[in-house]
Design a protein around this nucleic acid. Structure first.
Length: 262
DNA sequence: ACGAGTACCTGGCAGC
DNA sequence: TGCTGCCAGGTACTCG
């Protein structure tokens, strides 16, 4: 559930509590799902990075602890009913909380061993994610443009919320096939993706009605208040007043304004 | 090769 | 109140 802004908010929140600390133990009651955690024991956390929706802890001794939060995962400063892994540090603890258990943890010598991580497309803020790049990727596909934006191999970090919001800002209907998107529109999409992610990060991410995403200190994000279309089917488009529509793309809900987005 | 559908999990909520 | 069905921020797999 967490998309790039939520993962980055999480990274920033736990970085000061994690980096420079020694891992005393990683404890889980589900070793099938979270294997080999003992390998992290007694290592120092040297750095905490984010790539797309992955968090990467660089540990001493050439080991990486890679975490994907899945749909409902997050780090907490306190134990919760859905704590799955306790990060016991020399100076406190962090709790990996994940009600739906879609989150994953890997301990690897090289982050490239994590399958999807190795194939990720550019970060949205990277210069490599430009209009020419996106135009070429879209042009080569008949998939709906929204499916392409959510494809982590095209660009890393966008999920259902921010793909809808970016396409709204760019004025491109999510159902439009990639090869039908013009160069000019690709330019607008790149700009819209960058803007929407930057604003969401500034707002602390999006906390939906179910409240599943929260910062480690349990505080909520506020970007949901700025959503123009996501979750607003039937409500007036903030630009033209036409009711927002919901449809389905790749089995996921997609929201758009039928007037502003063609 | 691509794309649609389904599986993995649990919880919240609307509707009856 | 209690039950049922539906929906959910993601990714991987299978099948046509």
């Amino acid at each position: 559930m967490p998309e790039l802004p939520e993962v980055e908010v999480t990274r920033r929140a736990i970085e000061p509590r994690a980096v420079g600390r020694r891992i005393v133990a990683l404890r889980s009651r589900d070793p099938e799902r979270y294997p080999h955690l003992e390998r992290a024991q007694d290592r120092w956390i040297l750095e905490l990075l984010r790539r797309g929706k992955f968090l990467l802890f660089r540990l001493s001794g050439g080991l990486w602890l890679v975490v994907h939060l899945g749909m409902s995962g997050g780090f907490r400063l306190q134990q919760t009913p859905h704590t799955r892994v306790v990060f016991e540090l020399d100076d406190g603890a962090l709790y990996f909380h994940d009600p739906r258990r879609f989150g994953r943890i890997w301990l690897v010598a090289d982050p490239a061993e994590v399958p999807l991580l190795a194939r990720l497309g550019p970060e949205p803020t990277d210069a490599a994610f430009d209009a020419e790049y996106l135009y070429q990727r879209l042009r080569a596909s008949r998939r709906p443009v929204k499916a392409l934006l959510m494809d982590q191999e095209v660009v890393a970090g966008l999920g259902n919320i921010y793909a809808d919001e970016a396409l709204f800002r760019a004025g491109v209907r999510p159902t439009r096939r990639g090869h039908r998107v013009t160069r000019k529109e690709a330019e607008r999409v790149v700009e819209a993706v960058r803007q929407v992610l930057a604003e969401a990060l500034k707002a602390g991410g999006s906390t939906l009605k179910d409240g599943s995403y929260r910062r480690p200190d349990e505080k909520i994000g506020y970007f949901q208040l700025a959503h123009a279309v996501y979750g607003r089917q039937g409500e007036p488009c903030p630009v033209c007043g036409t009711p927002v529509r919901r449809t389905r793309i790749q089995g996921r809900s997609a929201h758009y304004c039928p007037r502003c987005q063609r």
